[in-house]
């Protein structure tokens, strides 16, 4: 298999199958936002620090600005758009709303995906475990107290 600068990849995003030809240099976040038009996942820092681009790849939480789209070939990807079913917020999203766990909302898609990953592994995380779970996600508006409360409420 010789190196290629363009490649056709197939991914499953939120249960839907997509096949696209793209440049090898394309970041996964650009593929998700620009090629698939799923703009829920955000680009905050573009340096791997802020976590606004967090998605699940084969069930693993990753920052999609630090991964090439070609690396996700064949993967099952979950983004924030996949959380609500039939227009109804899921329990975690509702808890974020109920606890005012967002201000401007820019970090929220990444927070929700990190919390989703955490709660799948740990059904009743402690406050420390919640804080460790969202350590890779930065909120620059208002802090983390309400976010932690929302995740704790969603776990119950």
């Amino acid at each position: 298999m010789d190196p290629v600068s363009r490649k056709t990849i197939t991914v499953d995003v939120n249960g839907e199958r997509y096949e696209r030809e793209l440049d090898a240099r394309r970041l996964l976040i650009h593929f998700i936002r620009d090629d698939l038009d799923l703009t829920g996942s955000h680009i905050g820092c573009d340096t791997g620090n802020c976590g606004a681009c967090s998605v699940l790849v084969d069930g693993t939480l990753v920052k999609s600005c630090m991964m090439l789209a070609v690396q996700a070939d064949g993967a099952k990807i979950e983004t924030v758009e996949g959380l609500a079913a039939d227009g109804e917020l899921n329990g975690l999203q509702q808890a974020f709303s109920d606890h005012h766990a967002l201000q401007c909302g820019y970090c929220t898609p990444g927070m929700l995906m990190s919390a989703t990953a955490l709660l799948r592994e740990n059904k009743s995380p402690s406050e420390d475990e919640i804080r460790k779970g969202i350590q890779g996600n930065i909120c620059r508006c208002t802090g983390y107290v309400n976010i932690v409360e929302a995740i704790r409420a969603a776990a119950q």
Binding site: D2, P3, V4, S5, K7, D23, R25, Q71
Partner: peptide, 28 residues
């Protein structure tokens, strides 16, 4: 950010990876 153009390969064996790394000074 847009990366500079790059070629990509995903070998399944160490020997194949070594061949690819050895074939191009700019391979990483």
């Amino acid at each position: 950010m847009l990366l500079r153009e790059v070629e990509y390969a995903r070998p399944a064996r160490v020997q194949e990876a070594l061949r690819l790394l050895g074939a191009n000074d700019g391979a990483r």
